[in-house]
Design a protein around this nucleic acid. Sequence first.
DNA 1: GTATACCTTTGAGCGCGCTCAAAGGCAAGC
DNA 2: GCTTGCCTTTGAGCGCGCTCAAAGGTATAC
Lengths: 129, 129
Amino acid sequence: MYMEKELTIQEIAKLTGLSVHTLRYYERIGLLDHVARTNSGYRKYSDADRAWIEFLNRLRATGMTIRKMQQFADLRRKGSATIHERRVILEEHQAEVRMRLLELQSNLESIEHKIVHYKELEEDELATK
Amino acid sequence: MYMEKELTIQEIAKLTGLSVHTLRYYERIGLLDHVARTNSGYRKYSDADRAWIEFLNRLRATGMTIRKMQQFADLRRKGSATIHERRVILEEHQAEVRMRLLELQSNLESIEHKIVHYKELEEDELATK
DNA sequence: GTATACCTTTGAGCGCGCTCAAAGGCAAGC
DNA sequence: GCTTGCCTTTGAGCGCGCTCAAAGGTATAC
């Protein structure tokens, strides 16, 4: 039988890149379901917890606000009846991220032009010395 | 002779997308050089001001912090002797933005996979009804 | 000349996403 | 059994990037 490894808060922090403070904070605000505890009250994280945290990390890394992630987590708690609603949220988010990517690329290009301009100025500087 | 149009704070706000509050704030913290005034003390923005603000906007849109922008603005005030230093800052920023772009694309792909997964779940749901 | 709609400055306040402090309990080593 | 270093909860604090409030001056219309 496959035994799931249970992780301490330190271990899950290391694996997910979140701080232990942030892990407790995310639980407090409902981003994570109430995490299982040992007899003495210490948190123990399951592989499912880990997968969910890593998904939250991707939402966060793409700029989703905590409020939106809370909405998503709430729907998830309600079960499979909310799958469509969750997909809609992700699709809206996807569209936003794609737009931001385009803008980012466009702004990056402008900055790259500026860099070229500075290079030319530096070369002129050298030429007249 | 080409006459430069001088713009009121409202006009420059509309053109650059910054609020009038933010324009005054940027000036206070040294992102903008002291802007010219009318006799009665009202700000009047030049085309050069406008170009600089639009450049700041691109730095901001690509995630440069205000502190970094202040450094850049300080170098700019010191004149052409700092061109090389400014280029270095922009190149470092460029590298960071490129990395963030890659991460963003990778995270977006994961989210897109999740969307596909949700679609499949929805179809299964329909099939069993 | 007065209403109203702008402008000025300075300093305070806010929303976000954490981050930390306080006070106390638990686990493992010696 | 005591030390060291972890864990718990609750509530306060912080840094960032604005955003607004207060108090007062100015410009234009009527």
